[in-house]
Amino acid sequence: RGEAETHRSLLLSSLLPSAACDKASPTGLKTATTLDLTHKHGPCSPLGPKSQTSPAQILQQDKDRVNWLHSRLTTTIDVERRSGRKKRPRLSDSAVTVPARDGSLVSSGNFIVTVNLGTPPRPLNLIFDTGSDVTWTQCQPCAKFCHKQLDPIFDPAKSATYSNVSCEQAVCQRYGDVPGVSRGCSASTCLYGIQYGDKSFSVGFLAKEKIAIGRDSFDDFYFGCGQNNLGLFGGSAGLLGLGRDEFSFVSQTASKYGKFFSYCLPSTPSNVGKLTFGKGGYSNRVKFTSLLTKPELPSFYFVDVVGVSVGGKKLTIPASIFSSAGTLIDSGTVISRLPPTAYAAIRAEFRKQMSRYKLTEALSLLDTCYDFSNFTTISVPKVSFVFGGGVELAVAPAGVLYGGSKKQICLALAGNGDDGD
């Protein structure tokens, strides 16, 4: 009985990918503003099986994503130091002012939603991302480069409600202030450029268009009409930016939804989740903690992690370990990254409680892996994060372990390089 309160017994098969899509999930809760949310690489993905990627590749791309997130902080500081005040680089000199860094925005752990753009509406499968602000899609005529995507590439010439933004408009100036965005001008037409590292970017026209989700539509939605798009976008048509900036989808639809949204990510790629805008659509079990901001990283959603428990044991980790660098919540990062002091404590306790199982070699950034070849059912310690106000996130079993086969399933957490990161 004691173990039932601190551990979960689970079928190994529930952790491994399935070839079939279980569409049953939350569709019963669907409302006008709730969208299906699918894993980019699973059998439910509208992008199809061609986009499937191995766990090792996903983890490598996840490293790139985290490097990019960390570089956002150092880039901001660099620019501020050079100019003496906060300043965003122009598109024309972005190569000088934004250091080239490893990393790509779009890792393989991303989720897809479908929106409609233009008049008549064209469906587009976009990556849903709380870690960036700009919504963009590939646009005809793809003047420089468009990657392969599932949907027909959006053609502004076939929409009755599309218009480019001119350089003289104030919105063009302000778009250049979006974190990570550079702006430019070509023949009086406003250009945007979003550069995520040394591999992923989108450059094109800043435009205004009608966008629809479910039965709701919004005129004059500002988005990037990409003419040069390169990166690990895996068949998607672009990105839906759900960050905090004034040009994010969340801010541009604030008049209707009041900057209120929620989501549920499915436990496996074989299930469907949901993304809801506006109040409602979530369970009454939800408990709230404070959403924090960091002035140097204004796009991101920060939370106040104060502790972690493993198998019902609250670990002794000084609160300052979490508070010194802060913690952001991101839909685009796969594996949580913790201060190394905190991760070391979790790993030690997890290994102790999992000592009946055989450790095996590391999987990329995951260093606590087990060979469960001889098991069909295993017992796993419950892992919980505790936030300010006593709110607890009891991680689902699918969020404690990660792997591609029974021979190598790992603790799905990793440490940062330094407690100050």
Partner: peptide, 30 residues
């Protein structure tokens, strides 16, 4: 910074009340 990734968010209702400055978690959302 530390990052709370999407694997740990799976099956949770994650609720953003940006204007109200609150973030909610609830188990068993999907």
């Amino acid at each position: 910074v530390a990052i709370l990734g999407n694997v740990q968010q799976m099956t949770q209702d994650v609720v953003y009340d940006v204007a109200g400055g609150k973030l909610g978690f609830g188990s068993g959302g999907c």
